[in-house]
């Protein structure tokens, strides 16, 4: 019974908003705007349970109630806590330029996240060496186009014979062959999205309700 309430809401709102897209009046536009301005207020509280669950799991390590507790784990969990509360307290005070919050954002968060992603270069290089084989026709084709794009993207084609033709072909393929493939994929994805939206509205798709639905 309790689970029927959210399902009912999804159904009613879904149908109303599908219909609203086909009505062009000031009040239908108002209703669309209402949905947009309510959405952040409806969703903002989700950050509270999310933060609570994460901190609670680290709290268990901190207090050594973990399955196999070690001092190192406890110290590291402590680091997370200190970082969280420093950010929280300084941020609530001020987030203007020059504040501690802004400083930590610019000098810790940005450099470290971009470094983390940059490390993938090393893994790509390893993968290129180990896995990229011209063993079958399919993979060879993949490799030929990868090489083509890599050469022309970096201006290396200016140093090789017939480089100009490489570049022209690469540009042409990006605008035609590549477009065809990506478009077919997008159409497939869009049909999937439509189906999912309809399934959600009619309560067939219930994975958003969490386990056991």
């Amino acid at each position: 019974m309790q689970r029927n309430i959210p399902l009912f809401l999804v159904f009613i709102l879904g149908i109303i908003y599908v219909l609203l897209t086909f009505i062009e009046t000031s009040w239908s536009e108002g209703a669309v705007r209402l949905a947009s301005s309510w959405a952040p207020l409806l969703s903002m509280w989700a950050i509270v349970p999310a933060t609570y669950v994460t901190l609670a799991s680290y709290g268990r390590r901190l207090t050594k109630r973990d399955r196999n507790p070690t001092t190192q784990k406890a110290i590291l969990a402590g680091v997370t806590y200190v970082a969280f509360f420093t950010m929280l307290i300084s941020g609530l005070k001020s987030n203007a330029e020059g504040s501690l919050f802004d400083w930590m954002f610019r000098n810790i968060q940005i450099p470290v996240t971009s470094t983390m992603f940059s490390l993938l270069t090393f893994y790509i290089a390893s993968a290129a060496y180990r896995a990229f084989r011209v063993s079958r026709a399919h993979t060879s084709l993949l490799m030929v186009f990868a090489v083509l794009v890599m050469v022309t993207n970096t201006g290396m084609h200016t140093y090789i014979p017939f480089g100009q033709y490489w570049n022209e072909f690469s540009t042409w393929f990006l605008m035609t062959g590549n477009v065809a493939a990506k478009r077919a994929i997008l159409i497939g994805v869009a049909v999937g999205m439509l189906a999912t939206n309809i399934r959600i509205i009619f309560g067939i798709e219930r994975s958003w309700m969490g386990g056991g639905a």
Binding site: I124, Y129, V147, M150
Partner: peptide, 23 residues
Amino acid sequence: GMPSLALVHACILILVLIGNIQY
């Protein structure tokens, strides 16, 4: 960063080549 970009790409291309020769 363009020279670095070209060199990294060249490096990866060479790695692919070596990998295939070994294979």
